[in-house]
């Protein structure tokens, strides 16, 4: 059962990013930082990791001449996240 838990989601920040993106369309970097209560460097390294496996996609634009990155979950990311949630639930029920 444990093998169904996604290794990528062992990190609290990565799991948090997926949780926020699962229920929102596009979320910008600063909002994510606020929800997860973390630093710029930490957040961006985790975002890059999730981007690499194509669980999330990024959109870059300029808002009043400042770059702004927004993130969105992909279909693959959504199903990986759902699998992880299912595995978590089953594990909790098994060990009650």
């Amino acid at each position: 059962m444990i093998e169904n838990l996604n290794k990528l989601f062992e990190s609290r920040i990565r799991l948090g990013i997926m949780s926020v993106l699962a229920v929102n369309d596009w979320v910008d970097f600063n909002s994510l930082k606020e929800y997860l209560n973390t630093t710029d460097g930490n957040l961006s390294s985790h975002l890059t990791a999730l981007e690499k496996v194509e669980y999330i996609k990024v959109r870059k634009e300029f808002v009043s001449r400042r770059p702004k990155s927004s993130y969105c979950i992909t279909a693959a990311g959504k199903s990986a996240f759902d699998e992880h949630l299912k595995a978590l639930e089953i594990l909790i029920n098994l060990r009650k």
């Binding site: 799991l15 948090g16 949780s19 909002s31 929800y35 060990r95």
Partner: peptide, 20 residues
């Protein structure tokens, strides 16, 4: 371990609520 999983689920739910 089980407590960890429950904490994880709680945190996921909390983040979903707060962000949406």
């Amino acid at each position: 371990k089980n407590g960890d999983y429950i904490d994880q689920l709680h945190e996921i739910r909390g983040l979903m609520e707060r962000s949406s």
